Deep mutational scan, measured.
Amino acid sequence: KVLVLALYDYQEKSPREVTMKKGDILTLLNSTNKDWWKVEVNGRQGFVPAAYVKVL
């Protein structure tokens, strides 16, 4: 399983997205889209901007 680090806070803007806080460790589920990556955080799955996270 691939983990990513949240570099910035992100507030979800649609039901398909998830909120994350800077420093959160998320599970990367899909990174085929260069702009939006699907992650799991706190038991929820959704998209975050790829530029806001870094693969650990």
Score class of each variant (00 low, 15 high):
34 K>N: 12
43 G>E: 07
9 D>T: 07
10 Y>Q: 01
5 L>W: 07
40 E>C: 11
9 D>P: 07
33 N>Q: 12
32 T>N: 14
18 V>E: 01
34 K>M: 11
30 N>C: 11
31 S>G: 12
48 V>N: 00
38 K>G: 06
56 L>Y: 13
1 K>Q: 14
19 T>W: 04
31 S>E: 08
28 L>W: 02
51 A>L: 12
52 Y>A: 07
21 K>E: 06
1 K>A: 15
22 K>Y: 05
7 L>Q: 05
54 K>W: 13
21 K>I: 09
35 D>F: 15
46 G>I: 03
55 V>A: 07
14 S>I: 05
53 V>I: 10
38 K>S: 09
25 I>R: 06
13 K>A: 11
12 E>R: 12
7 L>W: 04
16 R>Y: 14
42 N>L: 13
25 I>H: 06
6 A>R: 01
37 W>E: 01
56 L>M: 09
8 Y>M: 13
26 L>S: 03
43 G>Y: 11
35 D>V: 12
50 A>D: 01
17 E>L: 06
25 I>C: 05
37 W>M: 05
53 V>D: 00
14 S>F: 07
53 V>S: 01
34 K>I: 11
22 K>G: 06
45 Q>S: 13
48 V>H: 00
11 Q>S: 14
31 S>L: 07
51 A>W: 10
55 V>R: 08
4 V>E: 00
51 A>M: 14
33 N>W: 09
37 W>V: 09
31 S>K: 13
49 P>F: 03
26 L>P: 02
35 D>S: 13
33 N>L: 10
5 L>T: 08
12 E>H: 11
11 Q>L: 11
45 Q>C: 09
38 K>V: 13
4 V>D: 00
37 W>D: 01
30 N>H: 09
20 M>R: 00
19 T>Q: 05
48 V>A: 04
42 N>R: 11
26 L>A: 11
17 E>N: 06
27 T>H: 09
46 G>N: 01
23 G>E: 02
42 N>H: 12
51 A>C: 10
5 L>S: 06
52 Y>M: 10
40 E>R: 07
27 T>S: 10
16 R>F: 14
1 K>N: 14
3 L>H: 10
7 L>H: 03
39 V>P: 00
2 V>G: 10
2 V>R: 11
19 T>K: 05
53 V>G: 02
28 L>G: 01
31 S>D: 14
29 L>S: 04
44 R>S: 06
4 V>G: 10
3 L>P: 03
23 G>R: 03
30 N>S: 14
19 T>F: 05
27 T>L: 12
52 Y>N: 05
44 R>L: 08
43 G>K: 08
39 V>F: 01
1 K>Y: 15
56 L>E: 05
3 L>W: 15
54 K>D: 05
49 P>T: 01
46 G>C: 03
1 K>W: 08
45 Q>H: 10
16 R>P: 06
12 E>P: 14
33 N>T: 07
14 S>C: 07
35 D>E: 13
46 G>L: 04
52 Y>R: 05
24 D>I: 04
49 P>V: 02
55 V>T: 10
43 G>W: 05
20 M>Y: 02
19 T>L: 03
19 T>R: 07
24 D>G: 04
38 K>C: 11
49 P>N: 02
41 V>L: 12
15 P>F: 09
51 A>K: 13
28 L>Y: 02
10 Y>E: 00
5 L>F: 11
52 Y>F: 12
8 Y>Q: 12
56 L>C: 07
36 W>R: 03
29 L>G: 02
40 E>L: 09
45 Q>D: 07
9 D>E: 06
42 N>W: 11
16 R>H: 14
38 K>D: 04
38 K>T: 08
6 A>M: 02
25 I>N: 03
2 V>E: 07
25 I>E: 04
12 E>G: 14
12 E>M: 12
20 M>Q: 02
50 A>C: 06
56 L>W: 11
40 E>W: 07
2 V>W: 10
42 N>V: 08
40 E>S: 08
6 A>D: 00
33 N>R: 10
15 P>W: 12
44 R>M: 09
39 V>K: 00
15 P>C: 08
45 Q>T: 15
49 P>M: 03
46 G>Q: 02
10 Y>W: 13
4 V>I: 09
34 K>A: 15
14 S>M: 08
56 L>I: 11
26 L>E: 00
42 N>K: 11
38 K>Y: 11
34 K>R: 08
29 L>D: 02
56 L>Q: 07
34 K>D: 11
17 E>V: 06
51 A>D: 08
17 E>Q: 11
8 Y>L: 12
16 R>A: 14
32 T>L: 11
36 W>P: 00
22 K>Q: 15
43 G>F: 08
32 T>C: 10
36 W>I: 03
33 N>A: 11
11 Q>V: 15
11 Q>Y: 13
38 K>E: 14
19 T>A: 08
14 S>P: 04
23 G>M: 04
22 K>E: 09
29 L>Y: 05
5 L>C: 06
45 Q>Y: 10
7 L>F: 03
49 P>C: 03
33 N>H: 15
29 L>P: 00
52 Y>G: 06
17 E>I: 04
31 S>T: 11
39 V>C: 06
3 L>Y: 15
18 V>F: 13
7 L>S: 03
49 P>Q: 02
52 Y>E: 02
33 N>S: 09
8 Y>G: 06
4 V>L: 14
39 V>D: 00
14 S>G: 12
41 V>R: 13
50 A>M: 06
27 T>R: 10
6 A>W: 01
51 A>N: 12
35 D>Y: 14
13 K>T: 15
53 V>T: 05
36 W>N: 02
30 N>Y: 11
25 I>F: 06
3 L>E: 07
46 G>T: 02
30 N>K: 09
54 K>E: 08
53 V>P: 00
20 M>C: 06
32 T>P: 04
39 V>T: 02
6 A>E: 00
54 K>F: 14
37 W>Y: 11
9 D>V: 02
34 K>V: 12
39 V>M: 02
38 K>R: 14
48 V>D: 00
42 N>D: 15
20 M>G: 00
27 T>P: 15
33 N>M: 10
15 P>I: 09
40 E>D: 12
23 G>I: 01
17 E>W: 03
37 W>G: 00
25 I>S: 03
43 G>R: 06
23 G>V: 00
41 V>T: 12
14 S>V: 05
14 S>Q: 08
1 K>H: 15
56 L>S: 05
47 F>C: 08
35 D>G: 10
42 N>Q: 09
21 K>C: 08
50 A>I: 03
52 Y>W: 08
14 S>N: 13
41 V>M: 15
52 Y>K: 06
2 V>Y: 11
1 K>T: 11
2 V>D: 08
36 W>D: 02
47 F>E: 05
32 T>E: 15
44 R>C: 05
34 K>T: 10
8 Y>T: 10
5 L>N: 03
4 V>T: 03
52 Y>H: 06
42 N>C: 09
5 L>E: 11
23 G>L: 03
48 V>K: 00
41 V>C: 08
46 G>F: 07
26 L>T: 01
20 M>K: 00
17 E>D: 06
26 L>I: 11
3 L>I: 08
31 S>H: 13
56 L>F: 10
1 K>V: 15
28 L>M: 05
28 L>Q: 01
40 E>G: 06
44 R>E: 06
6 A>F: 01
24 D>Q: 14
41 V>E: 04
51 A>S: 08
17 E>K: 04
15 P>R: 08
46 G>K: 02
40 E>K: 07
16 R>E: 13
30 N>W: 08
32 T>D: 15
26 L>V: 07
53 V>Y: 01
5 L>K: 08
54 K>A: 15
35 D>T: 14
42 N>Y: 12
51 A>Y: 08
12 E>Q: 14
31 S>N: 15
45 Q>P: 05
4 V>N: 01
2 V>K: 09
47 F>D: 04
25 I>A: 04
30 N>D: 12
38 K>A: 08
22 K>R: 12
46 G>V: 03
26 L>D: 00
35 D>A: 12
32 T>Q: 14
45 Q>I: 11
28 L>T: 01
